[in-house]
Amino acid sequence: MRLLLDQFEKLVCAVLLLLMTLLGFANVVIRYGTNQSLAATEELLTGGFVLLTVFGAAIAARRGEHLAVELVTDMLPAPLRRAVIVIATLLSVLLLAASVWFCWQLLVNQMGNGMRSYALGLPLWWYSAALPFGFALVLIRYVQAALRGRDG
C-alpha cells in the first residue's frame, strides 16, 4: 500500500506511455500493412498525452525538477533567501490550487453540457476527469518536496 502511494504517478505514467507507444505503433503497422487503420488513434493518444503531462508533472514536482531561475536568489543573504523561497513556494501552491479549481470547473462544465469527443463520440469529460486530481497531486508532491527542504 505504501509502495503504491509512493509510486502511484510513476506507475500511471509508465503504463500510460507504454500503451500509447504500442497503440501508435499498431496504427502505423495496420495502416501500412492492411487496408484498415485504427482511425481514432489520434484522439486516444492526445487524451493520453494530457494525463501523462499532469501525472508526469507530479513526478517532476516531487524530484524538484520544475525549472526555476536561481540567479537572483543566489545573490541574497541566507535569511532573506529563505524568506523568498517560502514566498515562491506559496505562490506556486496558489497557482496549482487555482489550476485544480479551474480544471474542476472544466470538468463540471463538460459533464453538464454533454459534449462528446469528435472521433469516438465518448463523453468529453472522460478525458478531463483526471485533470483536477492530477494537478492536486502535483500540488501535494510540490509541497512534500518543499517540506523535505532543498538546499535552501
Binding site: Q36, S37, A39, E42, Y118, A119, L120
Partner: peptide, 23 residues
C-alpha cells in the same frame, strides 16, 4: 488511404472501400 475529419466520414469512407485515417 483517406484523411478524414470525423466519425461519419470514417463510416462513409469504409462504405466506399477506402481506408480512412483521422489526422
Amino acid at each position: 488511404k483517406m484523411r478524414v475529419a470525423g466519425p461519419m466520414y470514417i463510416d462513409v469512407m469504409n462504405d466506399l472501400g477506402a481506408n480512412p485515417q483521422q489526422m
